[in-house]
Structure formats: structure tokens, C-alpha cells
Amino acid sequence: MTEYKLVVVGAGGVGKSALTIQLIQNHFVDEYDPTIEDSYRKQVVIDGETCLLDILDTAGQEEYSAMRDQYMRTGEGFLCVFAINNTKSFEDIHHYREQIKRVKDSEDVPMVLVGNKCDLPSRTVDTKQAQDLARSYGIPFIETSAKTRQGVDDAFYTLVREIRKHKEKMSKDGKKKKKKSKTKCVIM
């Protein structure tokens, strides 16, 4: 069974824990209790493949930012979460993405942009803004509501699919490099 290491990042209060708990335990946590770091595991079937999701729910508070490099190193894919009623959390996505790329030393890291709290009427981040940002990053965008469960499975499952595509691409690139290195030079 394939294991996928997913990391949920975003500013404090955007609903990272609520999304994760909704996926794992099928219930909505409405009281806000700032996370330092929590880890969850769940076995699911995605596109006919049974897999184990190892999900790291991270601290959004700035005082825990020193811990970010460590979990970013171990993560295979990242859910970059903002709240649709919090423009600052949307603007912060850029910083999370840049930090992930720096730590992973790669421009090509599996990510999904997630606009959470889409059940709320007080939207300050337009869907088109988020779609445009995701398009500019070359990553999928999904709106979710941890409260109603809308888009929750889709967000995590899409990230797994992005990781699969990335692994497939990397193995193809690896095979191309191996083929090239088999060419021999004969000096007579």
C-alpha cells in the first residue's frame, strides 16, 4: 500500500485542523484551538488504489514558523489553505509557496490551493482571484467548507493525484537520464 505524506499549511484560523478532522473523523470542530502540530493517518481508496494518507496539520501562528522547514522537508505534497473571508490569509499563500519551493529546492512541488469556509456569506476573496492565482502557479484550486464537508475529500484526493503525477514524471525523467548515460565512448 502506497503511503502519501501530505502537509496542510496556511495562516492561523483558516480551518486547516477543521478540514483535516472532517476528512479523518467526519465531524466539524467549530471551536478554535490553535494547533502546534498534529499528525493523522487514514486509509482510503483513490482511483481504485488503496493508500495510506499521513497528514500533518501544522501551526499557522507566526511564533511556530521555525518548525516549518522541518515538516516541509518531509512532506510530499501540500494543501495551501486560505479562508475566503480573510484576504490576508490569501496573500500569505505566496509566502508559504515560496518557502516550500526553497526548502524542497524545487520549482515543481505537488500543491493544491484550497479556499476554505465557502459556506460563509462574508467572502472577501473572489473565486476568480483564487483561480487566477492557482493557474499562475500551475496547481489545482478547490473551494471547501469544513463545516458542510463540501470539497473536503476532493481537496485531499486531488493532492494525492498531483503527487502521483509528480512521481510518474520524475521516474520518466530518471529513465531518460539513465538511457543517456548508457551511451559509451570508444577510443581507438
Results as ranks from 00 to 15, higher is better:
134 A>I: 09
130 A>R: 03
167 K>W: 02
137 Y>R: 04
135 R>A: 08
131 Q>I: 09
167 K>R: 14
166 H>R: 10
159 L>A: 02
155 A>Q: 01
186 V>A: 15
155 A>M: 04
177 K>R: 12
125 V>G: 14
168 E>M: 10
136 S>H: 10
130 A>I: 15
157 Y>K: 15
187 I>K: 15
146 A>I: 00
132 D>L: 04
132 D>F: 03
130 A>V: 14
186 V>Y: 01
158 T>E: 11
133 L>T: 09
127 T>K: 10
169 K>F: 10
156 F>I: 13
145 S>A: 09
127 T>L: 10
141 F>S: 02
156 F>E: 00
165 K>P: 00
125 V>I: 03
132 D>G: 05
134 A>P: 01
160 V>D: 00
128 K>I: 09
146 A>F: 00
137 Y>Q: 08
160 V>C: 03
154 D>N: 10
178 K>A: 15
151 G>L: 03
143 E>G: 05
128 K>H: 10
157 Y>I: 15
158 T>K: 05
128 K>T: 13
147 K>E: 13
134 A>F: 10
159 L>R: 00
135 R>E: 15
131 Q>K: 12
184 K>G: 15
165 K>T: 06
133 L>E: 06
133 L>G: 04
182 K>S: 08
167 K>V: 02
132 D>C: 03
152 V>F: 12
176 K>C: 12
127 T>V: 12
187 I>R: 14
127 T>R: 08
135 R>Y: 05
167 K>N: 12
175 K>Y: 14
173 D>L: 07
160 V>S: 02
133 L>P: 03
170 M>R: 03
175 K>S: 13
144 T>M: 06
167 K>M: 02
132 D>V: 05
138 G>R: 01
126 D>Y: 09
172 K>Q: 11
170 M>W: 12
128 K>Y: 07
154 D>V: 05
126 D>T: 06
143 E>D: 13
168 E>R: 07
156 F>L: 06
149 R>C: 13
128 K>L: 09
159 L>W: 00
162 E>K: 03
152 V>S: 06
169 K>D: 11
136 S>L: 11
172 K>F: 10
129 Q>P: 05
165 K>W: 01
160 V>W: 02
175 K>P: 06
154 D>A: 10
169 K>G: 11
181 S>E: 13
136 S>Q: 14
185 C>W: 01
159 L>D: 00
137 Y>S: 13
129 Q>V: 15
162 E>S: 05
131 Q>E: 14
138 G>Y: 01
137 Y>H: 11
126 D>E: 09
152 V>P: 03
156 F>D: 00
159 L>E: 00
134 A>Y: 09
169 K>Y: 03
131 Q>W: 04
138 G>C: 01
137 Y>A: 09
131 Q>V: 07
165 K>F: 02
162 E>V: 01
174 G>S: 14
158 T>C: 09
149 R>L: 10
136 S>F: 06
126 D>A: 08
154 D>H: 09
177 K>Y: 08
132 D>Q: 09
139 I>P: 03
183 T>H: 13
145 S>C: 15
176 K>S: 10
130 A>H: 04
165 K>I: 06
164 R>L: 12
157 Y>W: 10
177 K>M: 14
160 V>T: 03
181 S>A: 13
165 K>L: 04
157 Y>S: 15
167 K>F: 02
156 F>A: 01
187 I>C: 15
152 V>R: 05
178 K>T: 15
132 D>T: 06
163 I>W: 01
132 D>P: 01
162 E>D: 03
130 A>G: 08
156 F>T: 01
138 G>I: 00
127 T>Q: 10
128 K>V: 11
139 I>K: 01
151 G>N: 15
137 Y>D: 12
136 S>C: 05
126 D>M: 07
158 T>F: 02
130 A>F: 15
151 G>I: 07
127 T>H: 10
127 T>D: 12
128 K>E: 14
